[in-house]
Design a protein around this nucleic acid. Sequence first.
DNA 1: CTAACTGTATCATATCAGTAATACAGTTTT
DNA 2: AAAACTGTATTACTGATATGATACAGTTAG
Lengths: 123, 123
Amino acid sequence: MISFEQFRMEDGVPIYLQILLYIKRGMVAGTVVDGDELPSRRMLSALLSVNPNTVQKAYRMLEEEGLIQSHLGAKSYAVVSGEKIAQIRTELLENDAQNVVRTLKQMGVTREEALALIVKYWE
Amino acid sequence: MISFEQFRMEDGVPIYLQILLYIKRGMVAGTVVDGDELPSRRMLSALLSVNPNTVQKAYRMLEEEGLIQSHLGAKSYAVVSGEKIAQIRTELLENDAQNVVRTLKQMGVTREEALALIVKYWE
DNA sequence: CTAACTGTATCATATCAGTAATACAGTTTT
DNA sequence: AAAACTGTATTACTGATATGATACAGTTAG
């Protein structure tokens, strides 16, 4: 069963996207493996205190990407392979890295300052 | 006159926020200095191909933060001081750094990998 | 002075995000 | 078989984002 222990709400980002990204990042990290059971829409919506429709939207998009599998009446499961993971990893890392580099540059931060910042906030 | 040459649209983030952040980051970088003239609402909306109301929303919020000054019929100007800049810099940097560190950690990326990524995408 | 610019305000409309309440169909558990 | 769970679908509502059209008041440039 995929755990949502580490999930923390972040405002400014749509909830369905946060759920979708949390699962994708778990796949990249290896904490979500092929065949893992997902919490039901109702269970997860209760756990996160959001509407079942919001969870359903995230799950539907994951299914359209072929990353989870659902059948009427039955539980849903993760469907991942090494190739898919490599692809998601690249996609997510490029997005994060490019965004942070662009915004830091916009603020006139130097490369060395940027590296120091990462170290500082890594704890 | 504040330049929007470097402005690039990013989807997923509200346009009024992108405009607001672009100006704030310019203040931190020193490319926007005290007394600088801002493009008029109509001019900027035409340049960015967005609605004048969207630009007005960004300008109104900047004014509420005391970072720009507007008078009916006259042009608008940046109003910044060293203290304000230091405050904005901290606010924006903390937000960016914390977010990127959190998402990279969620993906199981190590500190060294993270630093290598920054270097790679810095160009 | 007049025209052309400024900021500001108010409508109406469309889309997306999120909530809320139900309903129905299939599976699993007891 | 019945109860309790699953996924799926629909309808209605709110708020935020964004567009479009228009209007009015003050400032500046010709």
